[in-house]
Design a protein around this nucleic acid. Sequence first.
RNA 1: GGGGAAUUAGCUCAGCUGGUAGAGCGCUGCGAUCGCACCGCAGAGGUCAGGGGUUCGAGUCCCCUAUUCUCCA
Length: 895
Amino acid sequence: MPGTGFFCSPMAAAPRRACPRTGAEIRAAFLDFYEQRGHKAMASASLIPDDPTVLLTIAGMLPFKPVFLGQAPAPAPRATSSQKCIRTNDIENVGRTARHHTFFEMLGNFSFGDYFKEQAITWAWELSTEVFGLSPNNLVVSVFREDDEAEAIWRDRVGVNPKRIIRLDEADNFWASGPTGPCGPCSEIYYDFKPELGDDGIDLEDDSRFIEFYNLVFMQSNRDAGGTLTPLAARNIDTGLGLERMAQILQGVPNNYETDLIYPLIETAAQLAGVDYRALDTKGKTSLKVIGDHSRAITQLICDGVTASNLGRGYILRRLLRRVVRHGRLLGIDRPFLAAMGEASITLMAAAYPQLLERREVILAELEREEARFLETLERGEKLLAEVLAAKPSQISGEQAFELYDTYGFPLELTEEIAEEHGLTVDLAGFEAAMEAQRQRAKAAAVSIDLTLQGAIEQMAAAAEATAFKGYEQLEHPCCVLALVANGEPAERAGAGDSVQLVLDSTPFYGEGGGQVGDRGVLSGDGVIVAIEGVSRNRSVFVHSGQIERGSLAIGALVTARVDAACRRRAQANHTATHLLQAALKQIVDPAIGQAGSLVDFDRLRFDFHCPRAVTPAELEQIEALINGWISEAHTLQVAEMAIEQAKAAGAVAMFGEKYADVVRVVDVPGVSMELCGGTHVANTAEIGLFKIVSESGVAAGIRRIEAVAGPAVLAYLKEREAVVKPLAERFKAQPGEIVERVVALADELKATQKALAVARSELASAKAGALVHKAEPLGDFRLLVARLDGVDGAGLQNAAQGLADQLGDGAAVVLGGLPDPADLAKVILVAAFGAAVVAAGPKAGAFIGGVAKACGGGGGGRPNLAQAGGRDGAALDGALVQAREELRMSLLEG
RNA sequence: GGGGAAUUAGCUCAGCUGGUAGAGCGCUGCGAUCGCACCGCAGAGGUCAGGGGUUCGAGUCCCCUAUUCUCCA
């Protein structure tokens, strides 16, 4: 640690107990403090949020947002957590300021309609002064401009010097989750590094003096569409204390990066680069800070199941990761080092996040893969840039720099750096303009969609209550229509022929999810029949899509929903088979194999899994045999609902990164497979009948895909194959087992024959051509030869012409025309080969042959010395050749 | 979700404004060597990702699809 002389607080007169100092101690002290005060300690949620409107967990309260919005029940009246978060909107500031992070931990205490403002404030103060040992002289608080109540509590109840209570505007001290909904004023606690400057003229914006470390949100109002605030019945408390900031304060270091939460990573990177952090200039330090910060972020992201890609959070990971590589190179690290950083990050954070150890292999492998990929990108970019530089430009244009960046992912700074080495600059304004133009294009294209069918469906689903799913037990169920979208518009009623989406109060239809497709079937009742073609889920609302075949349907109608049992059985067979496949893969290939996605359709199944290599054909055979063994052993499935802890303790396989409710459904094939799964399954493995792997392939780096069929779908698959094999066997008069041999032999023979034919043709052509040499007519210094040569293809004719021209010397003017296939008058080929003297005298082969071809209903061109043309009128060929000879004679005589 | 680019021999890639598909490495054979490596000679290996279109003619131009890379949101 660079900071020496640890202190609790400069002013800590008499701390009652040893106050926390390390990041781990601060985290524990915070959680202890609130647990002792009746808060339920919650584990940090994943960085991948439930909330589909945000890409990443960006705030400590995010996992509780549905509670605050009244969409989910509170886990307890009071809760406290240390939540890992990632933010990338200020990514440029990371490493430059003292406290910007991508990855950070937010300590929070929350009240869901329980305690409120006064309690929150007094506890926050007690924690800050008593537990963390901060002197009141070092603290300043802010309150919302209009929040007299909070100010009064700070002043009168807590006893804060009124001069050290600052009122701030909405921008800083009013919280809202959106334009409407719950909201309320905030109050923040700041640490003052320079209390000696006094209480007058305090400017909280001055971050060289103040650092905000604790934010208290008092959720007390609801804002409606008109902007009017009404008091909330159940008022909430949402707070956040930045772990890294508190560590900076308590460890007496100049910035967050030098706390024990990050500094070990900086040391690791410095060692890899062979530099000394303290001896570096600002630029070098910044690079080390970026590496330290981003290393934590990428390690945690991968741990939570993010893989680098070009979309969404995968793209964020990629960008962060590449910045680390980039800054490593700036520091002079010239070999792969991300795995080392990942290793150090895991070691650093493993105590607080043990999952990092479990996922160590995955994390390091992903880091190495992505780093290698980026190094390739850099290499390619450097090559392209070298080509640009080879043209000796006076400047690298904005378009060129942008193309390198946009199309090839080559960082702008690198372009600048390399250009500088060549004494050139980059047109940065042009680059920005090109970037802006790209943004505009994207924007313009993005507006056109939405507010169509998807919009209507979402609107319908948002307004509806969760659909009760009856389909585990029943395939037929009486239901009531709750909401309706007809032909893309919300509707009260729909008639025959309309394509509809509808929500029922309960349903036997399985909604697409967990990889399994939605059920098909019909709704019927009171003269109406609706064919249901698919069912999707919008949160927990099932949306049935289909078409009204007869009658009409209105909201409130009572119908009988009937699932197509045959389809369902096929899906079930495929789904249970998928579980067996995963179990078999673990047994045969690698126990560590984890699911990366799956699809269960009526007629096939697809299973993607993490695996660094291809599964061998021998292994595939073993897998098939194993699964078919399990099928014939007729295992009866046990399906039960239980608490998630219980399920995990029993050894159920959970899919990584998936969200599970507290109560989960466990599908158990006793002794074979146990998985958490909401899908529908056969009652006994014997129902699957048969299992057959159709293909094994790679789908992305480190991910393999197996496609297979099970149950009735196997028969369909066999029929399909038979339809291929049977005609082949008949056509080749061979047993099915001999077909391969036969076809290979035939293909070889065909190739040999074609080759022999080509040789024979070219020999024939050269023989014919050889005979023509004597027909060349002298014309001054020139030797003119116009002849017809049938049965020779384009290449042969060109060879012949070139050969003749070579023999006849510089003055040769050779024009050959012919039908490649004498029986086909619709295809004519013409070739002209002129010697150098001819070209010098005027006639150019390209233009000349084009003119000749015109007479044969075609066109053509080529180089001045050699050109090729074609036509469609074989009958006109002789005439065209006669005319060509005349023209050539004329122009050569003139020349 | 929206741009840009790429896809050619087993591998890495050339192939200009449409006119007979190439190189290096690897592979096979022969030579040289006691043998290996190096070397010399010869050879095999391609539906130019797939499908449409324009054209007399498409690896090359246009459209669609697939896959990969990349930027933006």
